[in-house]
Design a protein around this nucleic acid. Structure first.
Length: 595
RNA sequence: GGGAGCGUAGAACAGUCUGGAGUGUUCGCCGGCCUGUCAAGCCGGAGGUCGCGGGUUCAAAUCCCGUCGUUCCCGCCA
């Protein structure tokens, strides 16, 4: 099947010197009009690029009416631009089209904002007119990149013999993990579906079903607060393989990610990706998703200050905590900056922050210097490699808080702003469980993750490792996976450790436990966020830039104004009553719209 | 749930700290001129509920309180 040209003979961006003297028809939007009175230039843009059309106003008296973003069709003859007027910045810059016939296919209203990459427009306005925003070259390129990503994923997995299988998007709600997006049932009043947070259990069922290699480009939903890299709905590559162990999963994901990076960036990522254990990631970078594009690693200073007279240091160590530091390098360090960093440290959970500046003479300038012996100061400086001008930041706290705080400050102070470099990283050997604030135990990945060792899980669950792994790109968690539990008895034990008693487990997951009873192959898989991946590959700071129609931080689509109120008839069918407060606001909003 | 920033013409901003007539810049829009531009240029013009409500004041875009919207962050996100 060939590409059908439709109304055009040539794509605007593909007209070249080879087409000189050819009669061509191009269609597209008027990017710019430069009207010199006796001659007028039109930049005509379609999906492929821009070509210059030259019109004589005597022959085309209407050319002056062609405003920006008018949709037009131009017939004409391709010719070389006169010497000296070529535009080397444009792929079509050697040629132009001498206009024969110009037809307005559709006029355009005055634009709410300029369709170019130069103007920075408020995001609310962009989203209200997203269809215009998507015409901007950068956004059009982001759409294409996204398509390339899914295409590379499908091609790679198809080659590897994977089956693309769709799983339901109306599923059971589960109270664990993220808040579910709920959908009320009409046929079963009072009951609710949930939109899936991931196809987790269905893909495991597919392993039981004999689908040995499954994938799906799956829309997933989590009803949690927004961030620059979080929306209510997002798209994941979800995959699973039977008779697999960890390295089979990692190698497959590496193949996929390499293919996507190659298709979008044109670079070959080095395989295999680096690997780091969770413990090492936390110790060195204070994060389970380290950005390894820069150093500024966390250093353990506990031994150097164990006997210190400085109560903050000594106290932390005596109570089982630790003292850690980073060398933030050469920084301007006025009092205000120091205060800001201290505030930030507190925001990240610290009680305070010790800062030191290495002076030209090697002395440490710090509010706490007077509490530290010369030897302690010297050891701190030595361990952190402090050179004159360097700022040293030290946190004394529990291990978790100390490394997390320094990890956060490290990102604030050292993280590269762009995404030119692609630093993929596997984080492996995650803990199986983690402790909640109330002391209870919860899973760190999800409750279907296989423990690394059954004995360890039973005897020492707090320390037990899991067969879970994350892939990280430039400090962003792209996704995670694990080898799953395929033995129903092990699964029941994990539920029990999590405080889910047998009766509850059977009620909620009995159907799944039963499925595991029928010869379930060992299996494992992975899921990564396509939005986040494309965001980084495109050098964007927010996933909204690579999602065609995203929502604002309060879950609003400014264009369609979703979500909207529904009337009582609809609610009655669903057996749902609004609270008095919601009703008031709804009826107030309705009245407001009518007036 | 909490913290911070922002909200002034169709767009992006300056003006707000230190109150004094809606004062200004760039782009767009309207009209005119212009035969080689490519973010064309030149001349002229229109366009404002300073988010909204309240307060202080002789006087509020500016100060105070509240509220709405938006962005970023903390919590949250298996």
């Amino acid at each position: 099947m060939v590409h059908r040209p439709g109304l055009r003979s040539h794509e605007a961006g593909s007209v070249t010197e080879a087409d000189v003297d050819a009669e061509v028809t191009v269609v597209g939007w008027v990017q710019r009009r430069r009207d010199h009175g006796g001659i007028a230039f039109l930049d005509v843009r379609d999906g492929s690029g821009v070509v210059q059309v030259v019109a004589d106003p005597d022959e085309h008296p209407g050319v002056g009416d062609l405003k920006m973003e008018y949709c037009i069709r131009v017939e004409g003859v391709v010719r070389l631009r006169p010497t000296g007027t070529e535009n080397p910045d444009l792929p079509t810059g050697m040629v132009e089209i001498g206009a024969g016939e110009i037809e307005v296919l559709a006029p355009a209203k005055t634009l709410p904002f300029m369709i170019d990459d130069r103007s920075e427009v408020d995001e609310l306005t962009r989203l209200r007119y997203r269809y215009l925003d998507l015409r901007r070259p950068k956004m059009a390129e982001n759409l294409r990149a996204r398509s390339k990503a899914t295409s590379a994923i499908r091609r790679t997995l198809d080659d590897l013999g994977f089956l693309e299988v769709e799983t339901p998007t109306l599923v059971n709600s589960t109270p664990e993990g993220a808040r579910d997006m709920l959908v009320p049932s009409r046929l079963r009043q009072g009951e609710f579906y949930a939109l899936p947070q991931s196809p987790q259990l269905f893909k495991q069922l597919l392993m039981v079903s004999g689908v040995e290699r499954y994938f799906q480009i799956a829309r997933c939903y989590r009803d949690e607060d927004f961030r620059a890299d979080r929306q209510l709905e997002f798209t994941q590559l979800d995959l699973e393989g039977a008779f697999w162990d960890r390295d089979d999963v990692l190698a497959t994901i590496e193949e996929v990610l390499m293919a996507v990076a190659r298709d979008i960036r044109g670079v070959d990522v080095e395989l295999p990706f680096k690997r780091i254990t969770w413990q090492e990631a936390m110790d060195r970078y204070g994060s389970d998703k380290p950005d390894i594009r820069f150093g500024m690693e966390i250093v353990d200073l506990s031994d150097a200050v164990a006997g210190s007279e400085f109560g903050v240091f000594a106290g932390a160590i005596e109570s089982g905590g630790t003292v850690r530091g980073i060398n933030a390098g050469s920084q301007d360090w006025p009092r205000s900056r120091a205060d800001n960093m201290t505030e930030r440290a507190k925001e990240l959970g610290a009680k305070g922050l010790v800062w030191m500046v290495v002076e030209d003479d090697g002395q440490l300038r710090s509010p706490v210097a007077k509490f530290l012996s010369a030897q302690e100061q010297s050891e701190i400086k030595g361990l952190l490699g402090g050179q004159p001008g360097d700022v040293l930041l030290i946190s004394a706290d529990t291990w978790k808080t100390a490394v997390t705080v320094l990890g956060g400050l490290r990102l604030d102070l050292g993280r590269p702003s762009g995404h030119d470099e692609l630093a993929f990283l596997w984080v492996v050997d995650f803990p199986l469980f983690e402790e909640e604030d109330d002391g209870s135990i919860t899973f760190s990945h999800h409750p279907f993750t296989s423990p690394a060792s059954l004995d360890e899980m039973r005897e020492n669950p707090e320390q037990a490792l899991s067969k879970a792994y994350d892939v990280v790109l430039n400090g962003v968690e792209l996704g995670s996976g694990s080898i799953r539990i395929h033995d129903p008895d092990v699964q029941r034990q994990v539920f029990e450790i999590l405080g889910i008693d047998a009766e509850t487990a059977n009620r909620r997951f009995g159907w799944f436990l039963e499925a595991l009873e029928y010869g379930t192959p060992p299996h494992g898989g992975f899921a990564f966020g396509i939005d986040r991946l494309v965001m980084i590959l495109q050098g964007e700071a927010s996933i909204r830039e690579v999602i065609p129609f995203p929502k604002t931080q309060t879950g609003l689509d400014p264009m369609t104004e979703a979500p909207t109120w529904v009337d009582d008839t609809q609610l009655r069918e669903l057996g749902i009553d609004l609270t008095a407060d919601s009703k008031l606001r709804r009826d107030g909003a309705d009245a407001g719209e009518e007036s």
